[in-house]
Write a protein that binds this DNA or RNA. Sequence first.
DNA 1: GACCCGTGGTG
DNA 2: TCACCAAGGGT
Length: 375
Amino acid sequence: MLTPASSVTKPDPQDLLAWYDRHRRDLPWRAKPGEVADPYRVWLSEIMLQQTTVAAVRPYYLNFLERFPTVKALAEAPTESVMQAWAGLGYYSRARNLHACAKAVVETHGGVFPATEAELLKLPGIGAYTAAAVAAIAFNEKAAAVDGNVERVMSRIFLVEEPLPKAKPLIRSLTEELVPEDRPGDFAQAVMDLGATICSPKRPACALCPWMAPCRARAEGLQETFPRKQKKESGQLRKGAAFVVLRADDTILLRTRPPQGLLGGMAEPPTSAWEPGYEPSRAVLDAPIEARWQRLPGTVRHVFTHFPLEMTVLFAKVPKGTPAPHDMRWTPRLHLHEEALPGVMKKVLAHALGELPGAKASGKKPAKGAAKPQD
DNA sequence: GACCCGTGGTG
DNA sequence: TCACCAAGGGT
């Protein structure tokens, strides 16, 4: 069953475009409203902008355009002059591919850029993102240009729990469904502007976002934790679900962890496995007992020595007389403080039940790791 | 799919 | 300080 925080509307591309029309950045390679985009300039800027900031690209782009005004001029230029003009921008294979691409456009396309995503993709230095971006921006093809900005925006809007890069196909399909028929190029640039100025990696300015209402990460207060990313480090974030069951006689379902290993011999409410790829949306499948499970807003976070943990908490009430599953037991709520509950499990129980009666052994601040529910 | 590629900005 | 990140692509 969905919590109220999960019930949000679908993002409307037109809301984003309306925002873009008012707040779009004025960039030298960007056609002004009403102007026709020059494929050469769009392509040149997209190559330069690969993994490179707008501020770094701007002077290089202007200099390039002056020295090589057309794709033909670029194709005919000596390699050394191209490399020289690129010097300082980094990723120098881009410059070689840029030159090779210009020659290919001149020699096999008559000096005219191919107008489709599929054809662009065949050219050197043009990958999935750049092909879609040029097709959309320069040729108004309904192509989904998915770059780091788009991945961040979409993963937040749709609360994509799957980590990158595995989530790329999902994010791509989510993006494709949003690309509007009328302004695919503006849509691509709008999402990127949004990602660059509002939906930033850290401290996103959600209050100013045209998609704040439909954003599921924002609704959960977790916008800064998306996109999830696959990290091979031992410190990789693990996720899981904890199940807090309150029986009608005011007892809580607990179990004791195995004597060896992490938190060995300690008490806990039943939990799922903890793993980087855990999907909280499927947590109910791991529930220890049949009940009407309620997914509580927010999460409980805890840092172990070798990995951080983020727990989703599910809560259920069951009738008096409900038996405890194998290897579990019912503990009176008022006796929880007598259990060997590790800190993370105290956080979980506090998240579901409020502050534990008598559970103030260490002078820790209450539920510090618990994300606050939204207003 | 992992790894490499460059430089500048950021909290 | 330093890890992370920026309109990715090629191998």
